[in-house]
Design a protein around this nucleic acid. Sequence first.
DNA 1: AAGGCGGGGGT
DNA 2: ACCCCAGCCTT
Length: 321
Amino acid sequence: MTALFSTACKRLPSWYARHKRDLPWRRTRDPYPVWISEIMLQQTQVKTVLPRYHAWLDRFPDIATLATADLDAVLHAWQGLGYYRRARLLHAAAKRIMDWHCGQFPNAFNDILALPGIGRSTAGAIASFCFGARHAVLDGNVKRVLRRWLDRPAARESALWDCAERLIRQCRDPAEWNQAMMELGATVCRRIPHCAHCPLSEHCASAFRATPPTSAEGKPRIQRLHWRVHLHLHPEHGLWLERRPRDGIWGNLWCPPISVLEQPPKQPPCHIHRLTHRELYLYAAMEPDEPRGKGQWSRKLSHAALPTGIARLLQCHGLTA
DNA sequence: AAGGCGGGGGT
DNA sequence: ACCCCAGCCTT
């Protein structure tokens, strides 16, 4: 095992130097943009993040700007990225950095880990990329690489962490090593691996195996929900929106009032929005009466942080700017 | 240990 | 169609 490690520690960095992608967050060691990129990249692909990353840094160029911004401005910049809790925790963490760390992003691993929205893997990424700390990253890419390399397709997360930490202790440059492992998983050791191009294939227990390891066991069921979306339209004030609860789907975003339908209505849905584990059947209803409850009129929908599914529904009614 | 949380790209 | 993505937080 130790021999495998030392071989990998030499070959992978050399492969990375030749094949790494030129990504904007790899051009800096400033923790603020690195932090933003890491949060955006949680369960979100590089291609999706790229345009949002530039727009975000344009809108919130530093921690102080983010900390003093309105939550709605933060959510609006996050619109369409999903997992909106990330945006709320990013905002909260910026405020905490102002209060607890004098506006300076902390450089100690445990202080980074203590920030909202930052777990062990993201803390390891920031600490190694920006401060050269010997802490491992274990994301989806690294897990896939290690499970194959060790030929332990069912390895527990704790075992993978142990392996990742052992490697980070042996490597020459922790920042380079973490980047290289992720890059290998993202570009070579994919769901269908390209073993012929892999620098570790000689010592990989799964290399060139005919059947790629099957990942999932029982497939999760898709929940089908039918939601009535109540559209209160005012000739002058626009559309009535309510803020959704902080926790749960579309947390803190703005949305027309929604009621849950126990039975699917006879009419076809205006829009079907598919998420990872739900299908939302949306039925729009024009409401002539004044709305009840807490909310606000919105004239310019392009300025509100709306869920993508609702934005699409409104587009069908010619309501979005 | 398990479940909730979005939206989009790849195949 | 289905899988997966630079995961984290709560229970």
